[in-house]
């Protein structure tokens, strides 16, 4: 079978696995969310039958149905995009998350791509002046900052740049009192609000520059570089098409994986900055014991990571011709 078919199959399998696990968590665990929700509603003075009915409605699970049938129904509604009904916000989970997801993606993609390009540029320069002052300084910086948890930094940034100096807003995701729309004030406000979360992720991401540095140094020792120089190619061609291009290849999949880990990090980050993204809602769902929202956010994040990795794998052969169409060379 073609590897792409296999790869897509694997991705689907992962998503299915996540959905199944979430179902099992809800349904089979002792003290499971379902009974917890029923008890909670009963405490609010709702009759047990009523409570049960409400819970079914919100979780897409009918406790009276035998497990296999309930499972099929649950998966069926998941596939149709019905993630249940949030108890705290009293809206469908899909709706809550759909308004939050773009904001998270906005912050994450900025953080990921700025750190990636900054890392590549710095890493390339570090490799070029290997052993020089820039190299030593940045290596030290990246090592130290790589071990600082970003949320610690986020709190520091918030304290200084937000509260003390008031350069950046201390919370929220868009400017207040401005009509959302495609106008400069609004866009500037949005960027202004996203700045602190992006910066706190950026400052600690030294990993990209370090691996770029290592990769570039490896490429600098390759034979083809020597041949290129002897052929008299201009330095800019050698730097971009020969060194950078080949050094970036191993980092491409890493970029996509880092998006996944950033999603995980966004939960705390968005809480710190009161930035209403997927992570923020997930955190509040945990605090409010809003199980449908929690499971929904969990599923969405998983699917997002799976899709990012799938895209990375499927497009890798586009940037590296050696991947994928590996003919019969390995004989």
């Amino acid at each position: 079978m073609d590897w792409r078919v296999r790869r897509i199959g694997q991705a689907l399998f992962t998503v299915w696995g996540v959905i199944t696990i979430s179902f099992l968590l809800v349904r089979l665990m002792p003290g499971n969310p379902m009974s917890a929700m029923i008890v909670e509603l009963e405490e609010q003075g709702i009759s047990p039958t009523q409570a049960r009915y409400l819970v079914e409605l919100r979780l897409n699970i009918d406790p009276e149905e035998p497990i296999p049938i309930a499972y099929v129904n649950y998966v069926g509604s998941m596939i149709q995009g019905d993630l249940g009904h949030s108890m705290y916000y009293d809206r469908p989970v899909v709706e809550v998350l759909a308004t939050a997801l773009p904001w998270t993606l906005f912050v994450l993609s900025w953080a990921a791509f700025i750190s990636f390009f900054l890392g590549i540029t710095l890493g390339a320069l570090m490799a070029y002046w290997e052993g020089g002052r820039l190299d030593l300084g940045l290596t030290g910086y990246a090592t130290v900052m790589g071990s600082v948890p970003f949320y610690v930094l986020a709190i520091l940034l918030l304290v200084f740049l937000g509260y003390r100096y008031g350069i950046f807003p201390t919370g929220g995701r868009q400017p207040t009192g401005v009509e959302p729309g495609f106008n400069w004030t609004y866009i500037r406000g949005v960027i202004h609000h996203a700045a602190l979360p992006v910066i706190s992720m950026l400052v600690v991401s030294g990993a990209a520059s370090l691996s770029m540095r290592g990769n570039s140094i490896r490429v600098l020792g390759e034979d083809y570089l020597r041949v290129a120089r002897l052929r008299g190619l201009p330095d800019s061609t050698i730097a971009i098409q020969y060194v950078a291009r080949n050094a970036i290849l191993p980092m491409y999949t890493g970029l996509m994986i880092s998006i996944g880990s950033m999603f995980g990090g966004s939960i705390i980050l968005e809480e710190v900055f009161a930035y209403r993204g997927v992570g923020y809602y997930m955190m509040s769902a945990v605090n409010q014991r809003d199980y449908p929202l929690m499971l929904g956010a969990f599923t969405i994040i998983t699917i997002a990571v799976v899709i990012a990795l799938l895209i990375a794998d499927l497009t890798y052969s586009k940037i590296d011709p050696r991947a994928g169409g590996g003919k019969s060379e390995g004989l």
Binding site: D223, Y224, Y242, D320, P321
Partner: peptide
């Protein structure tokens, strides 16, 4: 060169 295998930019 000897290393024709590695004398070309692979991409």
């Amino acid at each position: 060169f000897q290393g024709a295998m590695s004398s070309f930019n692979p991409v």
